[in-house]
Nucleic acid binder design. Sequence first.
DNA 1: GCCAACGTTGGC
DNA 2: GCCAACGTTGGC
Length: 154
Amino acid sequence: MAYWLMKSEPSDISIDDLAKKAAQTIAWYGVRNYQARNFMRDDMKLGDGVLFYHSSCAEPGVAGIAEVASMAYPDETQFQPKNKYFDAKSTRETPRWCNVDVQLVKKTRLVSLQELRDHAQLTTLRILQRGNRLSITPVTAAEWKIIFKLAEIN
DNA sequence: GCCAACGTTGGC
DNA sequence: GCCAACGTTGGC
């Protein structure tokens, strides 16, 4: 079992939006970075743990726990000409982009970016590294355990 | 809105 | 295949 941190802009899809979806599940569409895509396509497995992270907002941080709910499959938005994620170079025969489904496990208190930064044992967390912009990053079991516990403290 | 950091594109 | 220009990300 692997663990991941997945960024979402709450103005697009927040943890509360996810909670309102059918089966509290969404397709993680819109990833247009090869490294992030490869994580979904090559490494994600059903049941992998996901830290649902709010980015580009007033209070960036981990907002809840989710899990990988499907294996990767073609991202539908790449085929939709009016969609902002449309990719003219992608075809049904050889799709370029894929996504997994992500299902909410539970909303937690917000574990802020600052709190993550301040934690002595989280200095290795990928999103805290200088210049990291990847929207999907692996999380170690040790990091997961720490953040999971932090989120539990209400 | 700024800006640092990084990824992608495309001319050569 | 190099690399300058450009676009995007995301915290502040």
